[in-house]
Amino acid sequence: MTTNISRRTALRLASGGVAAAFAAPSILRAQGAYPDRPINIVVPFDTGGYNDRLARAFAPFLQERIGQPLNVINRGGAGALLGHTYFLQQPADGYTLLCTSAGPYIPLNILTQDATFKLEDFHMINLPSQDYTLLATSKESGLTDIADVIEKLKADPGSLSIGVQPASADLVNLMILMDANGIPRDGLRIVTFDGGGPARNAVAGAVVDIGLVGGEGFLPLADKITPLLTYDRVQRDNWGGKLVTDINGAEAAFVFGSQRGWGVHASLVKDSPDVYAKILAAIEETSKDPKVIEALTSQQLATTWYGPDESNAQLAASAKVIEQYLDLLKGA
């Protein structure tokens, strides 16, 4: 093959091209109004989990309002630490959104994993999904009331095996219940599982006597379990067991399981209020759209609109409770 282009010319052409390629988007960016290119949604979990499903189900509706395609990027691993770190490393220009279980993972990353970020680096736009801890037992276990469980554990803390995930909101909730009833923590027979799914299967199959796991995930197994205690002030998902407020009083402390939803860089709110306002409006409109609510509800995904103020306040509140029980979370 012969050409008339000398090596030097070729190099010059190539470098010019490269320079142009680098320069072009920034020129466009300077001129165009936000958003003028596709937007990424970082999900700090692997494909198939709740956040991934939420992001993928919500994205087609959100992109209609934002006017640019949305790409979901999964950055799973290390209890969302890797994904959260990656998200914060992206420029705070509104081209990277976050869909995560903000509570309890952001506080846990900070308190137990020496994360390099602070809670204040994140700004939650809406946390529609508030999972709750459900204390349940297998249908075969013969336990029908939380009072039986407390009585048994009072007589002998090691009498029941208890399935939980290590360093989880569920573990904090277990200890709150134990402390309130004067049951020593040391004697408990705690069995740790690597995820909510395995822990729920163990409860349903009577592999452990009782288990504390996120309640929403129990729904497909509803026929196989007896719900005993819901960690919320109101009944959830028609379980019908006792509420934590029935047992520990109206002021009972507890932590929500997972508070999942949408976030941005906190610096975006301060530095680019226009961009932030656009994202906020798009997420709010999408969340309130009856068509979206119908589509997501059918997939057991939440769209309730709480707004940034309430979402951030709730996240901060559960971060505070988690901090109180920090000693529990550093290695079970």
Binding site: G77, A78, T192, K330
Partner: peptide, 18 residues
């Protein structure tokens, strides 16, 4: 990180936590 929440042998590298 093992199933009980203890971290072993990661040499401080977060990518090895899983």
């Amino acid at each position: 990180m093992n199933t009980a929440g203890y971290v072993r042998g990661t040499m401080g590298v977060p990518w090895l936590l899983d």
